[in-house]
C-alpha cells in the first residue's frame, strides 16, 4: 500500500477507517513508535511526522481503541481562550501590570541604613559609590554596604517589587492572564500495540464489528457480536447448567422509526434490565436481549414488566423464551421472523 498516496474524498466511516489503517502502517514503518517533533507553527508546538489530514485526532482515537500505547513526552501551556501555545510569559509590575521591569539588587548602606536602587548612589572616581543619605563613600561590599537580593523595578510607575506576579500574553489572540490560569496539555508519543499490528495485518480496524451500532444510554451490539454472546451463553448452559433466556423485541412500524426514536424506546427497555443483560440487533427490525441465569418464568415476568413500562403505545412486540439448546434458539427466532431472520 502506498501510504503517501492521497486518500479518496468523502469522510465516511470507510474512509476514516482506511485513513487510520494507513496511519498505523506509517507508524510501523517508523519502527513502531512515532515521536512528536517541535514545530512552532503547529497548534500545540509539536507535530508528528506522518501524512494525513487529522493525524493528531487519529492518534488519539487509535490510542483510545488500544491500537496504540501512549508514552508521556512533554507538557505544554496553552491559552485557555484560543488553545494556542504562543504564550509570552514574563514578570509584570504588581501595580500597573507593565512588563517594563528591570531586575536590580538594592543597596543597603550599613552606616546610615539607607536602602535604594544602585542608580541612586553616585559613582566615585575610585570605583566606589556615595550614599545619597549620609554622603559617605561606600567602597567595600560586605563590610560597608550590601546587596539586598534581587528586586524588580518598574520603569513605568517606579514601584519596586521582590516577587512580582507572572503574566502570560497569548500572541495568537491577545488574551492576558496570570500564568497560573493557562491550561496545560500533555504531549505523548505513540507505540504500536499487538492489537494495532493485528489490525495492520488484516488491513482493517477490528472495531467495525465490536463497536455499538446505536447511540443511547446503553449501546446495542451488532449482529455478529450479539450472536457470539448468545453462543457463549449456550455453552455455559450446556457445560454448567446455567439457565439462559432471550427476550426478543420486534419493531412493529413498517417504515422503521428514526434511529433516535428507537434509541429512546430501547433506553426505556434498558432501564428495566440488569447491568449484565446485553442488547443486540439481529435484523433491521429485530432486537434481542440476552438474560443470563434467567429461567423462562423469570423472562416472562420481565417481559410483562417491560410492556407495562412501555405502555399501550409501545411500537415493540415482545416475546420471551428460555433457551436450552440450538433447537430452542431456532424455534424462537423462527417465531418472530419466520421468513428472513434466524
Amino acid at each position: 500500500m502506498n501510504i503517501r498516496a492521497p486518500l479518496p474524498d468523502g469522510p465516511d466511516d470507510a474512509w476514516v477507517e482506511q485513513r487510520r489503517v494507513r496511519l498505523l502502517q506509517q507508524i510501523s514503518e517508523l519502527g513502531g513508535t512515532i515521536l512528536p517533533a517541535g514545530e512552532p507553527a503547529a497548534k500545540h508546538g509539536y507535530r508528528f511526522d506522518a501524512a494525513g489530514p487529522d493525524v493528531d485526532g487519529d492518534l488519539v482515537a487509535l490510542a483510545k481503541l488500544n491500537y496504540l500505547e501512549t508514552r508521556f513526552f512533554d507538557r505544554v501551556r496553552l491559552c485557555p481562550r484560543c488553545d494556542g501555545h504562543h504564550l509570552n510569559v514574563r514578570e509584570v509590575c504588581p501595580t500597573c501590570h507593565s512588563a517594563y521591569l528591570t531586575s536590580e539588587g538594592l543597596f543597603h548602606h550599613f552606616r546610615c541604613g539607607y536602602v535604594g536602587l544602585p542608580s541612586e548612589f553616585l559613582p566615585e572616581p575610585d570605583g566606589g559609590v556615595r550614599c545619597p543619605k549620609c554622603n559617605k563613600g561606600m567602597h567595600h561590599l560586605g563590610t560597608e554596604y550590601d546587596r539586598l537580593g534581587k528586586a524588580f523595578a518598574c520603569h513605568s510607575c517606579a514601584v519596586v517589587s521582590e516577587n512580582p506576579p507572572v503574566e502570560a500574553v497569548c500572541l495568537g489572540c491577545g488574551a492576558r492572564m496570570p500564568a497560573g490560569d493557562t491550561v496545560s496539555a500533555n504531549v505523548f508519543s505513540y507505540l504500536l500495540t499487538s492489537r494495532g499490528a493485528e489490525a495492520l495485518r488484516s488491513g482493517r480496524l477490528l472495531e467495525a464489528e465490536e463497536q455499538p451500532v446505536l447511540a443511547g444510554d446503553a449501546g446495542v451490539f451488532r449482529r455478529e457480536m450479539i450472536l457470539e454472546f448468545i453462543r457463549h451463553q449456550m455453552q455455559r448452559q450446556q457445560q454448567l447448567g446455567e439457565p439462559f433466556s432471550l427476550l426478543l423485541a420486534t419493531w412493529l412500524d413498517g417504515d422503521g422509526a428514526a434511529a433516535d426514536q428507537r434509541g429512546a424506546w430501547l433506553d426505556r427497555v434498558r432501564r428495566c434490565l440488569r447491568s449484565v443483560d446485553l442488547v443486540g440487533q439481529l435484523g433491521d427490525r429485530l432486537y434481542v436481549v440476552t438474560l443470563a441465569r434467567a429461567k423462562g418464568r423469570e423472562a416472562e415476568a420481565l417481559r410483562r414488566r417491560i410492556e407495562k413500562e412501555l405502555g399501550p403505545t409501545s411500537p415493540l412486540s415482545l416475546s420471551a423464551c428460555e433457551i436450552k439448546g440450538e433447537k430452542d434458539l431456532a424455534v424462537a427466532l423462527a417465531a418472530v421472523l419466520p421468513s428472513q431472520e434466524n
Binding site: P94, S161, E162, N163, P164, P165
Partner: peptide
C-alpha cells in the same frame, strides 16, 4: 505572588 495590595520581601 506579590499583588497590588501585598508584597512580602
Amino acid at each position: 505572588y506579590d499583588t497590588n495590595r501585598l508584597r512580602i520581601i
